[in-house]
Design a protein around this nucleic acid. Structure first.
Ligand SMILES: [Mn+2]
Ligand SMILES: [Mn+2]
Ligand SMILES: [Zn+2]
Ligand SMILES: [Zn+2]
Lengths: 140, 140
DNA sequence: CTGTTATGTTGTAACGATTACAATCTAGGG
DNA sequence: CCCTAGATTGTAATCGTTACAACATAACAG
């Protein structure tokens, strides 16, 4: 049985072609795309796809813990199918969002305050190594 | 000389009544208000205030490091005049955004990857202690 | 103090991401 | 194979934010 079919079934979600394609797209493109990017790309092979379906599906997948939405940019949500705890770096020069494989060691302290934590988001913003290098080369 | 006048002058910003009021509002109301909340509140005493001015001013103050904008909610920016490094907790039940006084110990690791960090955002989302207590009491 | 000018303010219109809604379709159980 | 709850679609609406142009004013020189 197809990997993505299985994932949907395990979570009691109806298996539809749209859901399968969105799941697969996120799994194959780990650059934290927007809903609109996912829509535009998948529309190429499925011209009847609706943007509403992309939004609905991403929300469903999110509610079932299959995808994660990042608010790092402030203007649009970015989606991530990597469920493992990790942080993100947003380059303000090239716009790319880079995975930072660290876990937050502070969660315990927050829970000590009596709050219940469901999500941890660690965001860094600045200029990525690649863009810094380009800037330096342009100097001379 | 007024505290806020001094802050603006130190940063080479023209001193205007609007900027002074926005600075003061943020300093007096540390609940991470939206631009719209700031606008609505200040409009009471200055009916000619424009929403554009609030957005422009917040952006200027941000560029000069006098305020910080949080993308924690994903749907709207929240503003913070507390410049000291700290994290935030968003309660998905009552919507409040609570300061968490911890610094991120991971910044060094990110910089080790060659990236330049300008901003660090630590966000936790869940249910706050106060809302948890209410939920528990409602159980019986 | 007054005139000049760069900059700030205002109101309105435009924009872009997301959501609401109603009609149509379909996955999956019986 | 049929039924129906739930999914998909297209369109319109919403909401936060930004663009723009006319007008106003802070700050500085004289
Ligand atoms: Mn990621
Ligand atoms: Mn804060
Ligand atoms: Zn970059
Ligand atoms: Zn709460």
């Amino acid at each position: 049985m197809d990997k993505y079919v299985q994932i949907l079934k395990e979570h009691g979600l109806k298996v539809t072609p749209q859901r399968l394609e969105i799941l697969r797209y996120l799994d194959m493109h780990k650059v934290h795309p927007t809903a609109d990017i996912i829509y535009s790309e998948l529309k190429k092979s499925n011209p009847s796809l609706s943007k509403t379906t992309v939004y609905n599906t991403l929300q469903h997948l999110g509610e079932h813990g299959l995808v994660y939405s990042l608010t790092i940019s402030g203007s649009e949500l970015r989606f991530d199918s990597n469920i493992n705890q990790h942080h993100h770096f947003l380059c303000k020069t090239c716009g790319s969002i880079i995975d930072i494989d660290i876990e937050c060691p502070n969660a315990k302290k927050v829970e000590a305050g009596g709050h219940r934590i469901d999500e941890v988001h660690g965001y860094f913003k600045g200029v990525c190594a690649s863009c810094l290098k380009k800037l330096k080369n342009g100097d001379d």
